[in-house]
Computed example of a mutant assay.
Amino acid sequence: MSETISRLDRLRIVHEWQAYQPGRTDRTIAELEEREAAAARTRRKQRPPAPTWKLSVLRAGGGAQADAVHMGDCSMSGTRTQAMSREQALRTLTEHGITACPYCRPDRELGVL
Rank of each mutant, 00 (worst) to 15 (best):
P22A: 07
D107L: 04
R59D: 11
E109F: 08
E109R: 14
Y103H: 11
G62M: 08
T28V: 13
H96C: 01
E3T: 11
R47P: 14
D107K: 04
R86V: 04
I5F: 01
R43P: 06
V14M: 11
R86W: 00
R80K: 13
K54P: 08
P51C: 03
I13L: 12
S75N: 03
L11A: 15
G78F: 01
A37D: 09
S6N: 01
R41G: 06
Y20R: 15
V69M: 02
L58C: 06
R12Y: 06
S77D: 09
P22R: 04
G62A: 11
G72S: 06
Y20K: 13
E87Y: 00
D67P: 01
H15I: 10
R41E: 15
L32M: 12
V57W: 14
D73E: 12
S77E: 01
A68Q: 07
L11M: 10
E33Q: 14
I98D: 05
P51K: 06
Q65K: 12
R108H: 14
A64W: 02
R41L: 14
T52M: 08
W53N: 01
A39Q: 07
R12F: 06
R12K: 14
W53T: 05
T4S: 09
E95F: 09
S2L: 11
L110H: 03
T92A: 12
A89V: 02
T4F: 08
C101F: 09
V69G: 03
M71W: 00
E31M: 02
